[in-house]
Design a protein around this nucleic acid. Structure first.
Lengths: 211, 211
DNA sequence: ATATTATAGATATTGTAATATCTACATAAT
DNA sequence: ATTATGTAGATATTACAATATCTATAATAT
């Protein structure tokens, strides 16, 4: 009918479930499994088979009728959809408790993220290495971003510093910010911000507990 | 009409927004502000005024017509709804990178959570103190839970250990588990599990970035 | 060969959160 | 006093994710 083929938008919920599928598919691949059905995945994930079917269909996962989804092909489809099939250079601003914990998490390489630099203002941290990542002074942000061709910022600074640093990042051309500071950042429309709020999960737990 | 007054269920999304409101209301309270309108809050949070109105109405926040919501009263209402008006004794199992980062986060006391014990199996960690919290050997879980009357478990162990420890926790009578391990835990229906998955947020960021 | 079954795939339905619209009213301005 | 305005509160509508149902088919069992 229409000339404009509006590519079906994939829901945020689906996107958030993809890493879970990916982990399971990695395992299955390790065991040499070639096909897996949505009913099997449903048991693993405690989701409904139909949810899984639709999620995997949405990212174009290959399947065999009456047999299940192809393990290797589905891994490739999810990784491609998320852009996790090649590494983006990321850096971390703020290496306090949370920051250094994230630096210690090696799993990011499986998630398309290579953390190649960190920034902080504390003299005892600047010029040190944390988990193999060099810590620069925050004042050097703009120059290092350009020199190392960095793309994704992970923001783990105190709330009070977050917006100021964000402005610096935006001026330096950063287009993606993963924000762990408990603040709503103001950025231009072409900059993507993903906010994480650990207390949201705790609130959910407490509310469930009171019922 | 009906005799059964079915208390209106509050949505998960609303619950997850409550901590954000709470932070802003704490600030306003600190500045001595007594009333705040949903339109003001909308600017702060980048949400729509109507969403905020309905969220606050849902938890019974007091308001003054044509003036806004009462700051002190709303704080009390949210805290009461979440059970954050008195402290629950929590403990942490697994003190690796993430575990010790969470132990270092002092904000939990504002969230009704007092972490009073930690557990690990590594000999160099057992019997030490991390951020003022004593680390026991995981083998002592059941006895310490009973002795200290612990209620909420924070699970920050590797995926492979998570289900085994969960079984121990359930046997010890724990009813709430905040799960940071990338596994779906199997528990009896009366046990509440809140799963956190950091890669879900990263997936969301990457998907937005590719658009 | 034939029948059975488990599955992907397609379509239809439902439930619910988000959003829009309307109403009443307290405050402030004129 | 009178009018204008900004707000909570109530109701109506919309959008969309979750769920249910149906269909075709390939593998398996008989």
């Amino acid at each position: 009918m229409g000339f404009f083929h509006h590519k079906k938008e994939i829901s945020v919920q689906t996107i958030r479930r993809l890493p879970q599928y990916l982990r399971i598919f990695y395992n299955l691949h390790g065991y040499g499994r070639e096909l897996v059905s949505s009913t099997f995945l449903a048991q693993e994930t405690q989701l409904l088979p139909i949810v899984i079917k639709k999620d995997l269909q949405a990212v174009g996962a290959p399947s065999k009728l009456r047999a299940g989804f192809k393990v290797a092909g589905t891994i490739a489809a999810i990784e491609k959809f998320l852009g996790w099939d090649n590494l983006n250079k990321a850096f971390m601003v703020g290496v306090g408790h949370l920051g250094s914990a994230l630096l210690g998490f090696q799993g990011f390489k499986n998630h398309g993220l290579e953390i190649v630099a960190a920034f902080d203002t504390h003299p005892e941290k600047v010029s040190s290495e944390i988990n193999g990542v060099h810590v620069y002074h925050t004042a050097q942000l703009a120059t290092v971003i350009e020199k190392l061709n960095l793309k994704i910022a992970i923001l783990t600074v105190p709330a009070s510093a977050a917006q100021g640093i964000t402005d610096t990042l935006v001026n330096a051309g950063i287009k993606a910010i993963w924000n762990f500071a408990p603040v709503n950042l103001t950025v231009p429309p072409d900059v993507v911000v993903q906010k994480e709020d650990i207390s949201a999960g705790l609130a959910e737990l407490c509310a469930k507990l009171k019922r």
